[in-house]
Amino acid sequence: MNRILADTLIVTWRNLKRIPRIPELAIFAILQSIMFVVLFAFVFGGAIPLPGGGSYREYLMPGIFAQTIVFAAATTAIGMADDIHKGLLDRFRSLPMARTAVLSGRMASDVVYNAGILVVLMVSGFVVGWKLNTGIPELLAGIALLLLFAFAMSSIGVLLGLGVPSVEVAQQVGFTVLFPITFISNVFVPPSTLPDWLQPIAEWNPTSTLTAATRELWGNPNPFVGTGLPAEEPVLVTIVWAIVIIAITLPLGVRRYRNMSR
């Protein structure tokens, strides 16, 4: 157990050490999120009326945070695929280290990385008009929920990164799958504006429940249609989503890692 923890910390250290040395990655991740803020706050936002009123920018920012967190899956998958491609995974696997530390270290460092990105985005959010209408405990609870979800998305990323043939495929799969997931949701538009058949999907989409949960925690506009469970208990549903995702993808990822010697 001790060895798992120690080796996880070393792998985490290594992954974090890389971030400032390839600043482009973090900068573009932040720029991408800021681009969405600018596009929707200033371009589309004026055309999107919120049922029940409220500030669109205040509505938008929690969605942007959630969208960024969902993309954690791509970050992890790309990192994993890159380690395979460069032969580093082979090096790790030839060492007498705790086997799973390669995965746990990757997930731990990606959560820290996403926490950093979140801080930058929150500051940007304050600049364009996002407000915290509740207190510090609610702020921290919302951040904790986002990071729990980042961990779940990283767990998907591990599974994905170990399964793709190259870094480029990891990027492609990440974006072609994650973009629709973050758009068919309440991130940018109220789900009531979607066609009827799409509404339940958007409501149960974990990106939506995560967004709704943070809006609720922070007192931001949260016009959710329906009286279903996701609308009434977004925090609870988000936690369940995260646990289910981790419970399914983490064992599969570990198995895929062990089967690399097949």
Binding site: A6, I10, R18, R21, I22, L88, L95, M97
Partner: peptide, 20 residues
């Protein structure tokens, strides 16, 4: 198979630690 974003020394230290 070394990490190109770490220094030579950091690489060796890391592999040493993982060699226990």
């Amino acid at each position: 198979a070394v990490d190109e974003n770490l220094t030579g020394r950091e690489n060796l230290w890391m592999f040493g630690r993982l060699y226990q």
